[in-house]
Each structure stands twice: as structure tokens, then as C-alpha cells.
Amino acid sequence: MSKLKVIHYINQFYAGIGGEEKADIKPELREGAVGPGAAFTAAFGDKAQITHTIICGDSYFNENLEKAKKEILGFVKKVKPDLFIAGPAFNAGRYGVACGTICDLVQSELGIPVITGMYRENPGAEMFKNSVYIVETNNSAVDMRNAVPKMAKLGLKIVKKEPIGASIEDGYLPNGVRVNFFDTDRGSKRAVDMLVKKLAGKPFTTEYPMPDFEKVPPNKAIKDMSKVTVALVTSGGIVPYGNPDHIESSSASKYGEYDITGVMDLTESTYETAHGGYDPVYANQDADRVLPVDVLREFEKEGKIGKLHHKFYTTTGNGTSTKSSKAFAKEFAQKLLYDKVGAVILTST
């Protein structure tokens, strides 16, 4: 049997082209495997082969969505692979969204089987887990050696139209489709095992998780902005120069609270970004590009807003867990309430 033809989609980082400074590169088609493609080649053995790799910058993809989709789809049409794989993206948000978007498109437009992989908190997972098979990975590239064989195995199963097992059997993110299977233990034993673990304070896995897609209803509109104190919050990591609280460049464990009384403009020598997930050059040159203090001071003067709150809150949003972000905001929201802040402008990079 001849080997199945596979196209692999990766970003500029995994292609070894560069980090954030290269995140704007256009889609490119190369022959053969690149970067993590080697691990897939090993996992496929004699069953399949990566004949082509598509490389695209994460920022380019997300900022030029329609163009990027068209270009990449064009490459895939030309090669006509048996399987399309993307990533794995782990917890890289833009990469995950790109992998999900392009897999969904290749599957629906061209009818070609697809597989990707990412961490369950990656925004791409929430967006696409019901439309494409997404193998669940850990939150960092350290998990590559576990993720690749799982993706390769499930990918081949899909191509060969073999029956797909339940999500916990085949390692993909639950997609809302229930698949029955026989467990080795009967229900009563599993329930007692779970209870014993729970009583002993040990971790256990429920067989009936609660859905977590909660939405918060919008608050009422503000009647008169000119009477309201507006606070700035950012996940773009803007901090006073030197990052005095050492906010981590990714997977932040804390947020910063900084006083901007009398600050009219953020300058290169006074503010910078601590964020490690985007090209920091522009934010370091002029942090107003992320945290717009200068214009809000003008609005204050012009009476468009009551005033700009004298403190801003900041953290780095990349790789930071939903749990941490939630805890940060829960805490500083109380401070904002206490300070009688009436509206928040939150900027993200």
C-alpha cells in the first residue's frame, strides 16, 4: 500500500523562522516535513508521509483572515492530501485559532479529513472542538512527544473511516457527540472508587462534567459618560519601565496596579511591556499604543469622560490560565468598585 499523503500546517515559530517579530509572514508552501513534522513522520511509520508543510505567521493569519484562508486553501487544493494536520498549538491562542479555523475550512470546503491538537483552555478549542477533532494536549510544547502520536493515530483512524472511540479513549476534546463503550469496571464500583478518592481528598475524574460555557449578562449602558470615572485595564502587559513587580512574560501569576496620577503620556523611558507573546517593539516605543493614557487624558480635558481613574491594572495574557485571570479580575474589580469607577476600557493584544 502506498503511503497516505499528509499536509502539515505550522506557524512561523515551529518552522524555525522566528518568534513574534516574524508573526506577520505570509502563508508559504514547502515540500517535505518541517519542525514538528519530523515527529509526525516517525509516528506515521510506513502508513503516511508529510509531503508538504504550510507555514503561516500567527498574526498574519488572524489579521488577514479572509486572505489567509484563501491562500492556504489554494495550497491544499493543489496538493490534494489524504489528511490535513495542524499544530499542535498547545496553549498558544492565535496559533490555536488559526489551526482550528483552517482545519474546519479544509474539512468543510474540500472534504479532506483533518486533525489538530491543543490545550483545553486555548480559545481555538472552545471555537472548534465541535466541528473538528482536536486532540487534547498539555499547555506547553513539552507535551509534544505525547501529543504527536495521539494526533497521528486519530488522524489515520479518521482517514481510514475506522470507528472513533469516546473522547477519553481516543484522547480528543469532547465534541458533544456521545459514544458508548464498555468500561472494565461496572458503574457501582466506579462510583464507590470515586467517592473514596473524594473523601480522601485525592483527585478524581467525574463521568458527568458540568458545562462551563457561562456568559455574564451585559450591564446597563452609561447615560452620561462625562460624569463617569473610567479605568484602564490591559492584558497587554504594560508596566512601568523596569517591570518593578516582575510580572512574568507568560503564564502570569500576578497582576500589577500602578498609579498614573499626573501621567499625561506613556513614553519609551517610563513604560514598557512585560508581555512575551507579541513583538514588544511597538509597545516599548510608545505604550499608549496598548494602554491609551494620552488620548484619555485629552478626553478628560474635553469633558468626554468624567475622569481617568488614577490607577490602572495590568497583566500578561499569554498562557495565563483562565483560573488566574479570573482571580486577578475578581480582586481588582472590587477595588474599582470601592474607588467608584463607573466604566472600564480593557485592551488586549
Binding site: N62, E63, G93, R94, V97, P123, M127, K215, V216, P218, N219, K220, A221, I222, V233, S235, T315, S325, K326, F328, A329, K330, A333, Q334, L336, L337, V341, G342, A343, V344, I345, L346, T347, S348, T349
Partner: peptide
């Protein structure tokens, strides 16, 4: 973070480039 600010009762606007993520 946006959701927690909203939950606390403060109207909030999210300025971001990748709007699908915000959604």
C-alpha cells in the same frame, strides 16, 4: 478578566484585534 469586571457590575468595553477570541 472582561467577564469578571462585568460580573462585578461595571460596564466594560473590550478593545482587541482578534474579535472571535473576545466573543
Amino acid at each position: 478578566m472582561v467577564k469578571e469586571v462585568e460580573r462585578a457590575g461595571i460596564p466594560v468595553v473590550h478593545i482587541c484585534t482578534v474579535t472571535p477570541i473576545s466573543m
